[in-house]
Design a protein around this nucleic acid. Structure first.
Lengths: 157, 157
DNA sequence: ACCCTACCTTAGACACTGTCTAAGTCAACA
DNA sequence: TGTTGACTTAGACAGTGTCTAAGGTAGGGT
């Protein structure tokens, strides 16, 4: 977590206790939490932290390029702290788990000019869908309540 | 619209006036409306149609494979009636317009087995982001209120 | 042609996710 | 230490989607 905080300090971020715990939660693992999960984990370390602060801080981290927002479905966005290596996502349709993956080649190369319809194309998001090993083994899908916040996983074809 | 209705009839759908107008709205164009926009257009044809019915009908059309749900961002889902031809989406980051595109090759082929982490991969969504010709030409981005429902367009990297 | 009944629709409440505001607090600098 | 402008807070609010109970109706049976 020192790396992230050092980079933030270098960008003249005011290092408040709230921002520290949000950074700490994100830096702990390469998991992809929802804002609500991040709030819950931050509140375990700093009980009085408010929802608005978590949203503000996440928004700033995204604007700074330290964290990537992932919207795999119509539900809550997830936040990916692995912003410094290009990668795509593999989403379990049953439990909502997200894994970072590194496909071959440049996904942008697949779109010929004739298929760009005059658009200025600046990026591409690739989301692979499937079942994670646990869910494929027949484990019951975990509850998907709002407070636990694992979210649903339907995505476009 | 006769094709879609014929297919639905063949699946023993009860053809109510409400379902007819929703199918008619979706079948009119290859645009990608939000549920709210579909409700507004359906209500123009059948004023007493309710929001719940539109959501129910869209959910059933998705379950039947006649319509594809598209979630390009954390906002409202859009519904794509072009479910019978494999394609991907090109999204304008300014106005939210979606175009169907047909990239080269099979996007699934880009993910080697070593990058699948035991997942059973069943599909992939590719969303190209950029600016449509109108927005790139400097046109002011249209208003993005809830009722007009063009939605925001931030997606993951 | 009419009746039944299971399926469908409706209005509105409710839940979740995210944004905004006004007032109070505090990190960083002088 | 004092100052100040950025930060935080609680709660209201907005957009999107789901659910429920009550009433309506399409379509098959008679």
């Amino acid at each position: 977590m020192s790396d992230l905080l050092a980079r933030l300090r270098a960008r003249s971020w005011r290092l408040t206790a709230q921002r520290r715990v949000v950074a700490q939660v994100l830096d702990g693992d390469h998991v992809h939490f929802t804002a609500d999960e991040i709030h819950a984990r931050a509140a375990a370390l700093l009980p009085e932290i408010s929802r608005a602060t978590v949203y503000n801080t996440l928004g700033e981290l995204v604007a700074l390029g330290e964290v990537v927002e992932v919207s795999t479905d119509g539900r809550a966005k997830r936040y990916d702290p692995n912003a410094h290596h290009a990668h795509q996502h593999l989403v379990c349709e049953s439990c909502g788990t997200i894994r970072d993956v590194h496909p071959l080649g440049d996904p942008l190369a697949g779109l010929p000019a004739a298929e760009r319809y005059g658009f200025t194309v600046s990026g591409v998001a690739v989301t692979y869908r499937g079942l994670c090993p646990d869910c494929a083994a027949g484990a019951a899908p975990p509850a998907r309540t709002g407070s636990t916040g694992t979210g649903s996983t339907r995505t476009e074809a």
